[in-house]
């Protein structure tokens, strides 16, 4: 096809520039030039995966049939395990004003209104080193995504599929995603406002 076009150009338009005809056909990607090479994840990225502890995600087979993994939370929680202070179980639900004192001065509850949730909605008062699902099951902090997904099921579905949240390391290979609480503060989950970086100079 190219050759025919080229010849016509040469006959009909002697003054035409050869370059147009000599250029590649741009109708699609060029032919593959390199022999197949197996994908090697960059060593730095591989290390990132190695040094970031993670566990298999459970309960999302209906969204993502391929196994994927989620980062562990416990290594990042500063005052863990909770039983270091909380030697005995809590008994009464603590109102937000109480929580905001003492060791938890950094906790400012801006999640749902108090009629919907209190500390006990998520925390296991019998043993504070675990979290409690609405049905009563106790789960570790590392699986906190299961807790969030009880209400935020749409986000959780997108998270499992890949439309929400962030994946670590590369776009291929072992899929390790960040836990909900890696980005969202569970006590005040909305992302904040701040100054942007790098103002553009548009000519």
């Amino acid at each position: 096809m190219n050759v025919i076009r080229l010849s016509i150009l040469m006959i009909v338009v002697p003054g035409a520039v050869c370059l147009t005809a000599c250029r590649k056909d741009t109708s699609g990607p060029t032919a593959t030039a390199d022999p197949p090479v197996s994908f090697e994840v960059d060593p730095a990225e591989r290390n990132a995966l190695k040094t970031t502890p993670h566990d298999p995600v459970v309960g999302f087979d209906h969204v993502q049939s391929k196994p994927f993994f989620v980062t562990r939370r416990t290594a990042k929680i500063t005052q863990f395990p909770c039983a270091v202070c909380h030697e005995t179980p809590l008994t009464a639900p603590a109102p937000a004003e109480v929580v905001n004192r003492g060791m938890h001065v950094d906790i400012d509850l801006h999640h749902a209104d108090s009629a919907t949730m209190s500390c006990a909605t998520c925390h296991n008062y019998a043993d504070l080193s675990g979290l409690r699902l609405l049905g009563g099951d106790i789960i570790p902090f590392d699986a906190s995504y299961r807790l969030c997904s009880q209400c935020h099921f749409e986000q959780a579905q997108d998270w499992a599929g890949g439309a929400h949240g962030k994946r670590l390391a590369g776009w291929q290979g072992k899929r390790v995603v960040m836990n909900c609480a890696d980005c969202h503060n569970p006590h005040a989950p909305a992302l904040g406002s701040h100054w942007p970086v790098q103002k553009p100079e548009i000519p």
Binding site: L6, C18, K24
Partner: peptide, 13 residues
């Protein structure tokens, strides 16, 4: 030349 699919290196006649 910028052709991977068989370019013509001809001088234009």
């Amino acid at each position: 030349q910028g052709d991977t699919q068989g370019g013509c290196g001809n001088p234009r006649p």
